[in-house]
Design a protein around this nucleic acid. Sequence first.
DNA 1: TGGAATGATGTTTTT
DNA 2: CATCATTCCA
Length: 763
Amino acid sequence: MEYLNELNHEQREAVIHEEGPMMVIAGAGSGKTRVLTYRIAHLINHGIDPFNILALTFTNKAAREMKDRIGKVIGDNEARNIWMGTFHSVFAKILRMEADRINYPRNFTIYDTQDSKSLIRDIVKEMSLSDKVYKPGVVFGRISAAKNNLISPEAYRRNTEIMSEDSQAGRPRMVDIYTEYAKRCFRSGAMDFDDLLYKTNVLLRDHADLLYKYQNKFHYILVDEYQDTNFAQYLIVKQLAAARQNICVVGDDAQSIYAFRGANIQNILNFRNDYPDYALYKLEQNYRSTKVIVQAANSVIDKNTEQIKKTVWTDNPQGDLIRVHRAYSDNDEGSFVSHDIFEIQNQSQRPNSDFAILYRTNAQSRSFEEAMRKLNIPYRIYGGLSFYQRKEIKDLLAYFRLTANPNDEEALKRVINYPARGIGKTTMEKLLIASNKYDQPIWEIIAHPHTYNTGLNKGTLSKIGAFALMIQSFQSIINKKNAFEVADHIAQESGLVKDLNADKTPEGVARYDNIQELINGIKEFSDQIDPNNPDRIFTLPDFLVDVALLTDADNDDDDDNKVSMMTIHAAKGLEFPYVYVVGMEENLFPSQLALNSRSELEEERRLFYVAITRAEVRATLTYALTRYRWGQLSQCEPSRFLDDIEEQYLSRPKASPKQSNPFAGKGGFDQARQQFYKPMGSANDVNTSPKPNMKKVSDTPSQASAADLNGIRVGTEVEHARFGKGKVLKIEGEVPNHKATVYFPSAGQKQLLLKFAKLKILS
DNA sequence: TGGAATGATGTTTTT
DNA sequence: CATCATTCCA
């Protein structure tokens, strides 16, 4: 039991706690994961069968890391048998095993959000409702909330409060859409993300034998990030733990950042009601960060009213103050961060992987990507558009899905006419009408065109017949050959590869490469060997099982030495020596959508807390004075959150913007260095042409060289890409930070930094 | 029916 | 600005 010596008193108590309910409230950086992993290892060391342990996490990555770490303590062979994964993946697995009990096919499809919204869009259209009123996103959110609270379509209709909410919002037909949506998912043999939890609840509620079975399977249940569970998840856990009460939940109310998707902090508070004799362990010592960071973070979270009191403290050194940096623009912000990283690396030989840039929204990543590329700093972006959400990938997966489950309506709609085979809109409409009329999946109509009256002419029917035949030919091999052989066959025979190959634009080539990458991934999947059953063939349906639940963060190569860039949400649970929290501006962080209620604002503040506490050595906060949003240059105000940090922990910029930018003076060298490597043609554009043609100047702002300033003075007529023609009223500042006040008849008076604004001189 | 062109429209965060 | 959806034309 060597490992027990690596724990402090409170951690050890939590690890060796044997029977009965327990809760661990774990402050940021207090060794929460360590407690969970050692606790599981400890259970197994004490004779608990790994098969009887259920450990639920929020991301696949967290699950895998935990498994690895447990494996290091007790051996991989044992660790492999623990039921460990995300709520969604574990219960998808159970639902597949028990699918027939709720009349679902075992190989049901999992609809991702895109699929769900597309189906909703169709339903709204079919019901002749306005998609302005019934926006797919809004409708989906409403349905999702219902499911997360275990409200069936029938219960929804009976609930007068919900119904009147809808009618007051001008959406009285919401319940009809929900009803139809549920029906169509069922008919397609599909579940959406929320169904995985909702149907699990149904399964356990309606089938006492199954409840009994799983209660007796999972002797020990552990839940990570308990503060992020929603009602559906809470109830599953409660049901499964009811018999033995060996439930261990770990969480931190201060890090609850998923209330927007139904997570309920009350689940933590309810715990003491559900299990009155529970044991509570509080981990308050932070091992991650400096005193400054810990105390600054505490001063932030103190501003929230809703919280469980605890005092996070640390023995670590004091550390540097938290720097606040003011940038002129989003691009300037990017260049500040990249130069700062460059500098620190030069001074203290830190690897790239010691740095992370955290932002509120994925859209912010762009200026940082550009800035990092300019300095040749390798980086990796987590999140954003996941590999599996790219159009070409979804297209090919749709062929796979359709082959495995031909009732999958969304997959069918996606590929029936891609690549083009003459089955157009009107045909699809007729098929949909017939499908609804006979209450049969579209595939059923396609496969037996003469059984149903579709009103389609002969030519169309033969095209449809050819498509059906092709899918059927795929079906005939799908379980006989391994996943790679089938996938490759489908990619070729469907015509998809050929279609992509014909596109020689850079984007087209990238799409083709993505398809190759997917196929390669499937090849790897097929080549694995099941240690318990060496003869097992890994088929395409095997591959599809989890693919909808995979995210980008799952195929990481984390031995890579790269700067990490991600949203704060994605950074939860991670830590980095140097952290940059960027875009600290009103309406961005906190998001303007969170300003309506106290609770939403407090969630944003918790998000800020999460962001700061990712840092081990040094945290830097940056904001920009101007930023392009929705293609518009907009003025920004520093975030109110900056004032939530006690002043003593901050190093603020000086009053004058000029002094605040330590790299202002270096810009020229940067530009010169870049230009040095530029081909002659483009260098000329930038340097020698007195009136650069706007179209030719690249969108890299720093290329607008100092020479441009000379032509502009008060009274000069200029043209701006966005605001049109205008007249310069005032020029202030010094090289290279000239700022001009320009009056645009169309947009009013604007302050522009000449370094960045692409002004064309007209007079 | 297919494709290009144009227009509307929207961006939090994720399984 | 970027994506998507609808529209329009061949």
